[in-house]
Design a protein around this nucleic acid. Structure first.
Lengths: 198, 198
DNA sequence: CCTTTTATTGATTGAACGTTCAATAAACAT
DNA sequence: ATGTTTATTGAACGTTCAATCAATAAAAGG
């Protein structure tokens, strides 16, 4: 029973179904049959709207990246314009409730791994990595010399990713409170060091 | 031209070929045909010695985990028995030249991702994670209260994993020197805090 | 020299998967 | 009403891959 204007609905539906399928069975077993089933549509639809499985995976990764980026941007806009507040906003955005769901983290990890051998995913990945790093670096540079700021940014970016990674692998859901506190502590440690240079 | 006592040789050969294949093409494209080709043997050998592809992947992950564990144990044995020296040994072991090769890091990441949906890999993974965490926790507890030690261990473990992860994803090879310095700094920051409690 | 054991091959088989496309039907246009 | 566009289905097809196994051959044993 075709209604018009289905495209945006189907696209969203299929991206959600992809996240669900990856959560359930992993990227390797996220077949188009399974995805279509979770979305209650037939397999043909995927090729129709996304040109193929690869297009759907692309769109799914884009959505995950976009939502993370938007969440962080919103928090930063609301935060005051000090290095500490801005970096805290970045940390908070990364550990937002919506981002730490099991399905999102599993998808992240799966894409991380497969992005090393799929050039289109790799570009998305690297753009995102660089953005996190350079945002952190910019803020740290407001109170640290270049070299120190770079190391602080590298460290905090790695710490955030590592907390995510360990959260994705742990059977329990990530303890967001604890993760944030650990990242905050790292931040404060670096800022304290800033006073040495002031 | 069959010679006797081939089993250990073939096993090692095939595990190395698996690492190479994953490095070249990713876990998803590491077919038994490709692996057998890299080892200059036929596909049948894999089932013969490992019972199937899964057995080979299992053995490959075990080897990677074992070598990491052994390297760390050696460094710890050579280090003095202070928290700082012991934890530094653990850091050094994780950033050992042998461990940060592109093929090993790619394999790690691939296994990390797929271990969430393969119970046998998951067990190996979690045993390893716990070992790193509890070793760190034990050392931190020698100079920090329980809660603080746990957070320090969680943080350092995440930092190490995160540096690894970012190293695996970056196109360049991981800058080991820089990674170690960042981890050392984190360690010293935590130990400095210990003096508050002393 | 013959038999048994060990080592290896590679064609075959069956299952799984992504893609394609002819068929179908609802909604819209005229 | 009739024709056209938009939406969807699912069977058919071709490909890829892991597993299997009969065949082969070198070494060891007697």
């Amino acid at each position: 029973m075709p209604k018009l204007g289905m495209e945006p609905i189907r696209r969203h539906q299929l991206v959600q179904a992809t996240l669900q399928a990856i959560d359930e069975a992993g990227l390797a077993n996220a077949t188009i049959a399974r995805i279509a089933n979770r979305a209650n549509v037939s397999t043909g639809i995927i090729s129709h709207y996304f040109g193929g499985k690869e297009g759907l995976l692309d769109a799914t990764m884009r959505q995950v990246l976009d939502e993370l980026g938007k969440g962080i941007a919103q928090r930063r806009a609301r935060a005051e314009d000090s290095p500490r507040a801005q970096i805290r906003a970045i940390i908070d955005g990364n550990f937002d409730e919506h981002q730490v769901s099991q399905s999102v983290m599993k998808t992240w990890l799966a894409f991380w791994a497969s992005s090393m051998h799929r050039s289109n995913l790799q570009r998305l990945q690297q753009v995102n990595d660089r953005r996190l790093y350079s945002n952190l670096c910019f803020q740290f540079r407001r109170c640290l010399p270049r070299q120190e700021a770079q190391n602080a940014a590298r460290g905090l970016a790695a710490l955030i990713d590592g907390l995510w990674l360990r959260g994705a692998l742990a059977s329990k859901t990530l303890d967001v409170e604890r993760a944030r506190r650990i990242a905050y502590d790292y931040l404060d440690g670096q800022l304290q060091r800033a006073e040495t240079f002031a």
